[in-house]
Amino acid sequence: MVFNRKTMTAALSLVPALAAAHFQLSYTEEALIERPGDVPVKLIFWHPFENGHVMDMGEPLEFYAIHRGEKIDLKDTLAKTTFNGADNAAVAYDASVPVKRSGDYVLVTVPAPYYEGSEDIYIQQITKAYLNRNTLPTDWTEPQGLKTEILPLVKPYNVMAGSTFTGRVLSDGQPVAGAEIEIEYMAAEPDMTTGSPKEATVGPMPGGAVVAISDQDGEFTFGIPRAGYWGFAALGVGPDTEHEGKELSQDAVIWIRAYDVK
């Protein structure tokens, strides 16, 4: 099948998954910031759709923000903590990003590879999330030059529930055709004070992970059915394929925020 923008709807499907989706979170309570100040961030490796198993994170290799094209190193804000999921507790990290001037703040997390013993592979999910202050767009349309990333083609911090989100999967800056993208809803958002999940608002989908396939231009489109945070993970699209003698799945993850139209 040849994929293009007209056939992308047909490419989106629910397919069984061998395991629930792992997702690296770079979570803030709000994506639209009204007042200047330090915005708390939680970095968690989790199964947020099902409020499931939490994985131990190693210290991130990189953690920074891009604002007006400039890099703000945030590694000195990292503090190891524990996230208490519904089933288990695991190592996570608290951090913060200084949001002062108007514009976009693109949060970039490059985690240490995680060893998944059940599959005998390493997983590294290079993750982007977006904040904005005063509704001034400055950076969201640009790639961040990562080994692999998803470039949003819809403004990612105020998507309308009931509309669609389109992204382009990149590896070393080049579009990736035929990429498998797992799609996850943050059903239970983290409580920033207690370090545990809030009450889940929905349950996981029957039939396994929600999956889209990118077209020949690396693009995919997904209809956003409800407000909240949505994550997209393009699996194994990065250029690095091995870590410490084992297979590495180097994934590109993006989180977007959708709102109801009122």
Rank of each mutant, 00 (worst) to 15 (best):
I150N: 10
D139W: 15
Y114L: 04
I213H: 06
P60C: 08
P204E: 08
A161H: 05
W140D: 00
V106R: 07
G223S: 14
G203Q: 12
A234R: 01
E199A: 11
E116R: 11
A20Y: 15
F49Y: 06
P204A: 06
M8W: 04
Y122V: 00
I66E: 00
W46K: 02
Q250A: 10
H47D: 09
A258I: 04
P98R: 10
H22M: 10
P204M: 11
F165S: 00
P137Q: 07
K75R: 14
I224S: 09
E59S: 04
T241N: 11
L151M: 12
D172E: 15
H67D: 10
T141I: 11
V108F: 03
G231D: 00
N4C: 05
T166V: 10
L18R: 07
M1P: 07
V176A: 00
A258P: 03
T82E: 07
P48E: 05
T127E: 01
V41R: 00
T138K: 05
G203A: 05
G238C: 09
D217S: 10
R168G: 11
P48R: 06
P152N: 03
T7H: 08
G208C: 12
L131Y: 08
S96P: 06
G117M: 15
E182V: 13
I126M: 09
P152M: 03
K155F: 14
E50S: 15
P111Q: 02
Y64Q: 10
P36I: 12
A227I: 05
L153P: 12
L18Y: 01
Q144P: 01
V91Y: 08
Q124F: 06
I72A: 09
K75V: 12
Y185I: 03
I121N: 06
D217Q: 09
N158A: 13
E50V: 04
P40N: 09
A65C: 06
P48T: 12
E29T: 10
S102N: 11
R101S: 09
V2Q: 13
P190M: 02
E34S: 10
V211I: 03
V97W: 00
G173T: 02
W140P: 00
V154L: 07
T138A: 02
G52M: 15
D260P: 01
